[in-house]
């Protein structure tokens, strides 16, 4: 195959329509990072293991390294930049800061988006269930404890409210 097959993609990213042409083989992660310029979505493995690239695809978390940009055509993608700007996870972000749950920050966007899905899932917020929901998101720096603390705090507040 000589020529690079390209696909035109029309996708809603954080609520705004993005129209772009990209190589068919381009992952959604690379598309978001290098074509749309949203570098808050990180790439740690390109194998689906580490969770650093987690974004929302039609409202639910997905690995952007295991999704082609072409597959996002006609769908809605949300990234850390979007959920930050909308204020949706502001309380969770503050809790991460209070508990020092972000060290190098490389896992943090994926961790937050995953945590937000946990908080929306209606699962009981035992530390055990938080930990299990987060497996699939590596953090090499923190030891996870502070991340669990932060999520548990917000889950507790939600349950009380």
């Amino acid at each position: 195959m000589d020529k690079e097959p390209r696909i035109s993609i029309s996708v809603t990213v954080n609520g705004a329509l993005v129209e772009a042409e990209a190589p068919a083989r381009e992952s959604l992660a690379d598309f978001l990072r290098h074509r749309v310029g949203l570098t808050g979505t990180h790439v740690g493995c390109e194998q689906g293991i580490c969770g650093a690239c987690t974004v929302r695809f039609d409202g639910r978390i997905a690995r952007s390294c295991l999704t082609l940009a072409a597959q996002a055509h006609g769908h809605s993608i949300e990234t850390i930049e979007g959920v930050t700007d909308s204020g949706e996870i502001a309380d969770l972000q503050e809790a991460f800061l209070r508990h020092n749950a972000a060290q190098c920050g490389f896992c943090t966007p994926g961790m937050l988006i995953t945590a937000a899905e946990f908080l929306n899932s209606g699962e009981t917020a035992r530390r055990e269930s938080i930990r299990q929901f987060l497996s699939g998101n590596y953090c090499r720096c923190t030891g996870y404890h502070a991340i669990v603390d932060a999520i548990a705090e917000i889950a507790g507040k939600k349950a009380d409210a």
Partner: peptide, 9 residues
């Protein structure tokens, strides 16, 4: 089977 994000897809 896998983790939540993988099960979603």
């Amino acid at each position: 089977v896998a983790h939540a994000a993988v099960r979603n897809r």
